[in-house]
Design a protein around this nucleic acid. Sequence first.
DNA 1: AAGATAATAT
DNA 2: CATATTATCT
Length: 325
Amino acid sequence: MREEDSNWFSRWEEELPPPEDLMPLSQTLITPELAVAFDIRHHATAPSHQQNLHLQQQQQSFHLQNQSQQQQQPTTPSNPTAQQNQQQQPSSGDFADSGELGSGNGGDEPARTLKRPRLVWTPQLHKRFVDAVAHLGIKNAVPKTIMQLMSVDGLTRENVASHLQKYRLYLKRMQGLSGGGGGSGGGSGGGGVDAATDHLFASSPVPPHFLQQGRGNSDHFLPFVQVPPALQHHHQMVAAAAAHPQLQQPPQFHRPVGHFGSPPNNGHFDHPFLSRQPQPQQQQQLHRMGAPVHSPVAAGYVEDMESANASGGRKVLTLFPTGDD
DNA sequence: AAGATAATAT
DNA sequence: CATATTATCT
């Protein structure tokens, strides 16, 4: 197979995040991963599979909200589901480590049974996702690979898979009602064909070739999509965010609701995302893949975009890839 | 609607 | 067996 064509892979290797962007971890609580890794309910039948646990020493936090889930079907009864919440505030905060979560915990914090909070796909994150998919080509755009290319800390394969599923539906849906024209990325131009305005998806400039090329075409001539090396401000991202400004709230239970990712009516949001640390995290091996994947896939990305506007129409400022965006 | 998780397929 | 895709649930 023509590995020679891997121009996309050309050279992302060396674009790791700046060393100094690590914000002071305000991590007061156990890292979810850690917790999860440790706490996996190990009794019950089939263990191992809940999710992959990669032990990495990430210090950043994840955002993610917590969602409690419970059993419902009679077929699988018994399951001590305890609901636990954890929160934290990355930005500007400092860590007030009031002893919570730790050991003695003065009250009642099972601290066990920790689930992973919901990931909030913010536009930036999605953008990364799309870029990754674009660069991989529809063919290689499978969850694992995408995840790796995105290099977003805390992002799991399932996260990507789930999102990918939705994204595919979105693409299909669009194909349906878009005649072909043009592609104005993002479409949205005048209205009408905007279709479902899937908020999130609509915000990123869907790569052209996505909309066509149905399955069955083994050929792939991906156009030239490449990221200009150098000069890009890449912010780091971490798959997380904050439980948003909820200052006054006792560090105990807090209703996870409300992601701050989508402001109901405002101009923009802003959250510092951090890219996954170049930490020597164990790199999963890529099996047969012609691609020369040596160093940990880390990509430098460009991210910038605004949120749609609030009332009435929306103007997308972020134009499509004009060379690079 | 958005994301997780169970079920199923490769 | 690991990973991908599909289906369901919350």
